[in-house]
C-alpha cells in the first residue's frame, strides 16, 4: 500500500523499491482479476476459451484451476448471447468480467454492449446499474487482416455511459483492471495483443489506479504528445529521436479516454504551445479528433500551431507486413507531425 500512498495517482513511474518483480502484461491483467475474484465472490470471468483452454492468449491461465468452472465460464462462440447474458447478471448484482478474444468480435455484440450496458442505469431512472468489465485485444499490428484489427475506441468512445480504459504498461494494466472491476459502471478495457508479452515492473499486492488521471511518461518543453495504449511506446521512441534534433517532447499517456484527463493535457500544452495527438483508431470522428478539438478550445491563445494528429490511415487494415506498419501510427509519422507542429519540418 505504501507505493499507493506516496504516489496516489501513479503519475510518476512506480517505485522500484522493495520486491523488484517484472511480469508480463498478461500476467498483470490476470493478477488483477485473481485478486478481485478472491476478494469478491460476485466477480466472475466468462468468454470464449477462458477456462479449459487457459485463455486464447493465456491471460486467464490457471484461473479455472483456482476458481472452478462456476466462476471461470467457457462460452460458445456467441458474443451477442454471452455479452447480453453477462449484462443481465450484472443488473441483478453480479460483477462479470467478459473476455472478448478480440474486440473485433464485439461488433456482433454491438446491441448488448452499446444499447444495454451503458443505457440501463439511465433508462431505468437509476434503478438498475451494470457493473461489468468487457476486456480483450484491441488494435492492429499482428497481420491479422482487415476484420480482426479493429481499434474499437474509435467507434465506442462516441457512446455516453461507458468508461474506456486503454493501458500501455503492465503496472497500469493491473491497477486499472482492479479499478475497472470495482467500478459500478460498464468499463471497456482495451488490451493490445502486441503488448501482452511486454514485461514491466508490477508491484505485488493491492493497488488501484483511478480513472481519468493521465501519466506523464516524459517531460519536455517544446511539444506535448498525447496518446494512449500501444502507441505511447512509439511516442517515447519518437521523442528520443526528436531530442537529438533539439526538439524536447513531453509525452502524456491518457490511460483512460472516458473519462479524459483534460486538465493534465491543457496544463502541458499551455507550457509547450504545441500539441500532437497520436491515436491508433481512424481519424474521422475519433477520440483523437475529440481531444484535438478540446485542446484547440482550451489552449487557443497559447498554441503556436494547430494540433497535429497521427492516426491509422483511413483505409481497411492491410495484411502485408510493410503495408500494415505503414498504416499504423508509427515512429516516422509521429516525428513528422512533431516537426511540423513545431515548425522544424
Amino acid at each position: 500500500m505504501s507505493a499507493v500512498m506516496s504516489n496516489p495517482l501513479f503519475r510518476e513511474p512506480l517505485s522500484m523499491a522493495g520486491a523488484e518483480r517484472e511480469i508480463e502484461f498478461r500476467d498483470a491483467v490476470r493478477e488483477a482479476m485473481c485478486e478481485e475474484m478472491r476478494r469478491d465472490k460476485r466477480v466472475y470471468l466468462l468468454g470464449e476459451e477462458v477456462a479449459q483452454y487457459d485463455g486464447a492468449y493465456k491471460v486467464s491461465k490457471g484461473m479455472l484451476a483456482e476458481f472452478g468452472a462456476a466462476r471461470v465460464v467457457d462460452t460458445p462462440i456467441s458474443e451477442s448471447g454471452f455479452s447480453g447474458m453477462a449484462i443481465g447478471s450484472a443488473m441483478l448484482g453480479l460483477r462479470p468480467i467478459v473476455e472478448f478474444m478480440s474486440w473485433s468480435f464485439s461488433l456482433v455484440a454491438a446491441d448488448p454492449i452499446l444499447n444495454n450496458a451503458p443505457k440501463m442505469l439511465y433508462m431505468s431512472g437509476g434503478q438498475f446499474g451494470c457493473p461489468i468489465v468487457f476486456r480483450g485485444n484491441d488494435g492492429a499490428g499482428g497481420q491479422l487482416g482487415s476484420t480482426h484489427s479493429w481499434s474499437v475506441e474509435g467507434l465506442f468512445s462516441n457512446v455516453p455511459g461507458v468508461k474506456i480504459v486503454i493501458p500501455s504498461t503492465p503496472a497500469d494494466a493491473k491497477g486499472l483492471m482492479k479499478t475497472a472491476i470495482r467500478d459500478d459502471d460498464p468499463v471497456f478495457f482495451l488490451e493490445s495483443e502486441r503488448l501482452l508479452s511486454m514485461k514491466g515492473h508490477v508491484p505485488e499486492g493491492e493497488y488501484l489506479i483511478p480513472f481519468g488521471h493521465a501519466a506523464l511518461r516524459r517531460q519536455g518543453k517544446d511539444c506535448t504528445i498525447c496518446s494512449w495504449g500501444r502507441p505511447v511506446h512509439f511516442c517515447l521512441e519518437a521523442a528520443e529521436i526528436l531530442a537529438k534534433e533539439g526538439i524536447d517532447c513531453e509525452v502524456i499517456d491518457l490511460r483512460t479516454i472516458r473519462p479524459l484527463d483534460l486538465p493534465t493535457v491543457v496544463a502541458s500544452v499551455r507550457k509547450t504551445s504545441a500539441a500532437v495527438v497520436v491515436d491508433q483508431s481512424w481519424s474521422f470522428a475519433s477520440p483523437g479528433s475529440e481531444l484535438a478539438a478540446q485542446i484547440h478550445r482550451h489552449c487557443f491563445d497559447e498554441l503556436d500551431n494547430f494540433v497535429h494528429r497521427v492516426h491509422s490511415d483511413d483505409v481497411p487494415t492491410p495484411y502485408a507486413v510493410a503495408l500494415e506498419q505503414e498504416y499504423l501510427p508509427n515512429v516516422r509519422k509521429i516525428c513528422e507531425a512533431v516537426r511540423s507542429a513545431t515548425y522544424r519540418a
Binding site: 447480453g84 447474458m85 453477462a86 447478471s89
Partner: peptide, 11 residues
C-alpha cells in the same frame, strides 16, 4: 432474451 438468461445465471 440474453438478459433473461443472464438474470437466471445470476440467481
Amino acid at each position: 432474451t440474453p438478459l433473461g438468461a443472464g438474470l437466471a445465471f445470476a440467481t
